Simulated assay, not measured.
Amino acid sequence: MNEMLGPAWTAFISVLVVVNIIGCLWLIWWTARPRVGEEAEGAEKNHVWDEDLKELNNPMPRWWLNLFVITVVFALGYLVFFPGLGNFAGTLGWSQSGQHDQRLATVQAQRDAFYATFDGRDVVELAGDLDAVQAASRLFADNCAGCHGPSGQGALGFPNLADKDWLYGHEPAQIVASIANGRQGVMPPFLATLDPAVADDLIALVSNWKEPPLPQARRAAAEQKFKVTCAACHGQDARGNPLLGAPNLSDDIWLHGGSTEQIRQTVMFGRQGAMPAHKQRLSETEIRLLAAYVYRLSGQADQ
């Protein structure tokens, strides 16, 4: 903080501190010095003011005055060794930021030493190691639970990591890539290109792919519209495309809600989602540990 002060502020603070210390010394000296006609130390003094206002005054004990002097000497010593006079850093060179960096480096060294025990091991192997899973659970709580929930079951707009439905693939390398590089999911809006009646039938088809509540002719028309409008991302069979992160529409798992209105909102107005990249904040080993935790959470490790 001191490094941010300009010369004027440094001078102001230094003068203010020195003047206060000198003022304290003067006050101690002025109150402790003997006065003409004053009784001996420890004697009670009965002062009379305005003829009838009396004040009983006991002199301050000498040890108390000495304690004040020691306090001032300590303050002077502190200002020599530690920062307190503007930009003067003190002879020891101590600073809050320096102490913070030192402690952070110590914690980081301990952290690196701990995670080094998991270096060089693949995701599947780590998923079967209970010590690794326990370490990964703490990483998950710190980095993932805010979006995916403490148990990984997600919420609207945030994928459930505890099932076997995967937007970008369930292979260990794919999970590692999602964590390290992040993902950007985009569903374009079709409000301007879909006729309302056609949109209603398309939504009915998607909401119940196996048995859509549509007459045969309208169902065939909706399926044809799906092939033209949606199949490029979601596939002809609506089972999705992990390369694009396009979800499977033929099951009952919905990232943004499966009600008719929620699906309509998705189709007509689109959706956007972002999984942040973690390769700048987590080491390679930590990313593999997280991938192993998700891999195990989804039940893939039991197969």
Results as ranks from 00 to 15, higher is better:
264 R>A: 11
193 T>C: 02
190 F>I: 00
136 A>E: 00
99 Q>P: 15
203 I>H: 01
294 V>D: 00
149 G>Y: 01
129 D>A: 10
119 D>P: 00
63 W>L: 04
71 T>Q: 13
90 G>D: 08
8 A>I: 09
60 M>N: 04
233 C>R: 03
142 D>T: 08
156 L>E: 13
66 N>I: 15
134 Q>S: 14
3 E>C: 09
271 R>V: 01
22 I>G: 12
98 G>R: 02
110 Q>C: 01
286 E>V: 00
91 T>N: 03
14 S>N: 06
160 N>L: 05
164 K>N: 03
183 R>Q: 06
107 V>D: 15
150 P>N: 13
124 V>W: 01
186 V>W: 07
128 G>W: 04
140 F>D: 00
279 K>N: 13
204 A>Y: 09
42 G>V: 02
89 A>M: 10
62 R>S: 12
162 A>D: 08
180 A>M: 05
150 P>A: 15
203 I>M: 00
288 R>Y: 06
209 W>H: 07
107 V>F: 12
74 F>I: 14
303 Q>W: 15
88 F>G: 07
58 N>K: 13
102 Q>C: 10
43 A>F: 03
147 C>W: 04
24 C>F: 12
274 A>L: 13
283 S>F: 03
5 L>C: 06
60 M>W: 13
56 L>Y: 11
107 V>L: 11
127 A>S: 10
201 D>K: 04
160 N>W: 04
11 A>F: 12
234 H>T: 05
93 G>S: 01
289 L>C: 03
8 A>R: 15
160 N>K: 07
80 V>Y: 12
264 R>F: 08
35 R>L: 04
131 D>Y: 08
230 C>G: 01
278 H>K: 14
218 R>K: 13
92 L>I: 08
141 A>V: 13
72 V>S: 07
44 E>D: 15
52 D>E: 14
105 A>Y: 04
78 Y>P: 00
39 E>A: 13
223 E>I: 13
78 Y>Q: 09
117 T>G: 02
1 M>G: 15
260 T>W: 09
50 D>P: 06
94 W>M: 11
133 V>D: 02
54 K>G: 11
285 T>V: 02
41 E>M: 05
89 A>Y: 07
152 G>H: 01
31 T>A: 06
73 V>Q: 12
220 A>M: 04
200 D>Q: 08
288 R>T: 09
265 Q>T: 11
114 F>C: 03
207 S>Q: 11
288 R>N: 05
147 C>Y: 07
26 W>M: 06
42 G>L: 02
153 Q>W: 05
244 L>H: 10
147 C>A: 09
98 G>C: 07
88 F>T: 12
130 L>Y: 05
283 S>P: 00
238 A>Q: 02
58 N>Y: 15
297 L>D: 00
225 K>T: 12
109 A>R: 08
102 Q>G: 15
182 G>Q: 11
206 V>T: 05
5 L>S: 04
2 N>E: 13
29 W>R: 10
138 R>M: 10
32 A>V: 08
219 R>Q: 12
243 L>W: 11
253 I>M: 09
184 Q>L: 14
281 R>F: 00
38 E>G: 06
177 A>Y: 10
303 Q>F: 15
